[in-house]
Amino acid sequence: MHVNYPNLGFIWKLTFLIAGGLLLSSLVSSPVDPNARVAEPIVWAQNRAPEVPSQDDLAGEAVPFESFGVREQLDREMVVNTYHHSSTMLYLKRASRWFPVIESILKEKGLPDDFKYLAVIESGLSQVVSPAGAAGFWQFMKGTAPQYGLRITEEIDERYHVVKSTYAACDYLLDANKEFGSWALAAASYNMGKAGVRRDLEEQKVDTYWELHLNSETARYVYRLLAIKAIFEDPESYGFSIQPDALYQPFETRTVWVTSSIDDLSAFALEKGANLKALKTLNPWLRSNRLTLAVGDSIGVKIPI
């Protein structure tokens, strides 16, 4: 059956004309309130290019900004880390908790204070594992860790022990600096290995990190360290404003010395007035739910106060 529908287009046009007329009439007839609040225009935030330091140094060694590509490579890392907002903000918060520990060990071992930023670029000051299997704040590989005194068993992995792994990292960097005579090259070797740096220096017949043609990760590595250093030394200039009470504070702990094996760390934690979550957070190097000690051994375990 054929149905004659009304002309909908005409009806819609007529409706809009009537509505528009009514709106115009109300605007004309309504008095203007001089005290009415005028909506403020929306101002969109602008991303400002972060300033690249005009001069800088790594562990007292001047950065040669006049050398080919140096300024632009540092600029890239300044941009990336300034606008990597959530990660950089968390790094700044965590530093309040962990830098005092790291700084004291660097000073004790005679390393420049700048190397605390190496832990930031390695792990973000968190107990992470890389796709390659490097672990902990200082990202030691399983094969390298024992060479620097870090114990790894089924129950213990000292790559996750902040204090012990910091001492190990210091020993590595001291060895590398002794070989290469440069803190920048020592830092680069932390990323690609001493053998890799040695090979590239010999093949390319240059003497400094800044002249080397490197794999993409190591080519950015020292520049990223410098960028993090610049941001941490003056965070507000790079858009990071953190109130003191928003920073992560050091854990308040006491040390319990364990002299015999523990079959159940959950029960041990409860016995000490804590729980397994707190125990593993404060002692991430405990990798099992038990702890086996040889006769005569002792080990310090942190417990929250």
Rank of each mutant, 00 (worst) to 15 (best):
D113N: 10
V163M: 14
L92N: 02
A59D: 01
V38I: 13
R94V: 14
P31T: 06
E217D: 09
S96Y: 15
D33H: 05
E108D: 12
L214Q: 01
K116H: 01
K13Q: 15
D245H: 12
Q139E: 05
W285P: 00
D175T: 07
S288C: 06
T253H: 04
R94S: 06
Y238P: 04
Y190D: 02
L286I: 05
G9M: 13
N35H: 04
Q147S: 14
A188C: 06
G193D: 06
E233G: 06
V3I: 15
F180I: 08
S123V: 01
C170L: 11
I156S: 08
P304M: 05
Q139S: 07
K116L: 04
G273L: 02
M1E: 15
S165I: 07
F140C: 04
D157T: 07
V129T: 11
V43L: 10
H2V: 13
F68K: 11
R287P: 00
A269D: 03
R151D: 15
A95W: 05
P244T: 03
E179A: 15
Q243D: 15
E203W: 08
R290P: 04
T253N: 05
A274H: 06
L173D: 11
V32D: 09
E236M: 12
P235G: 03
A62E: 15
K13R: 14
L24A: 12
I152C: 14
G296H: 03
F240V: 00
L17Y: 11
V63L: 02
V256Y: 07
I242V: 02
E236Y: 12
I18N: 12
A176P: 10
I121Y: 03
V120R: 04
E61C: 01
A219K: 09
V258C: 09
K142G: 14
E61H: 01
I299S: 05
S216K: 14
D297E: 11
R94Y: 13
R37Q: 07
E66I: 10
S260G: 09
D114S: 01
S266H: 15
V258M: 08
V79D: 11
W44D: 12
R290L: 09
Y117G: 06
P235D: 00
I105H: 09
R97Q: 12
F65G: 05
S104M: 08
W12A: 13
D263L: 14
L293D: 07
I262D: 07
A274K: 01
V52L: 02
R290Y: 05
N35M: 00
V80R: 11
C170V: 10
Y238D: 04
E40I: 04
F232R: 08
D56R: 05
T218M: 00
S216V: 11
Q139L: 07
L293S: 03
K116N: 06
E252G: 08
G300P: 02
F268N: 03
V128F: 12
P6A: 13
M192I: 08
A269K: 01
G196N: 00
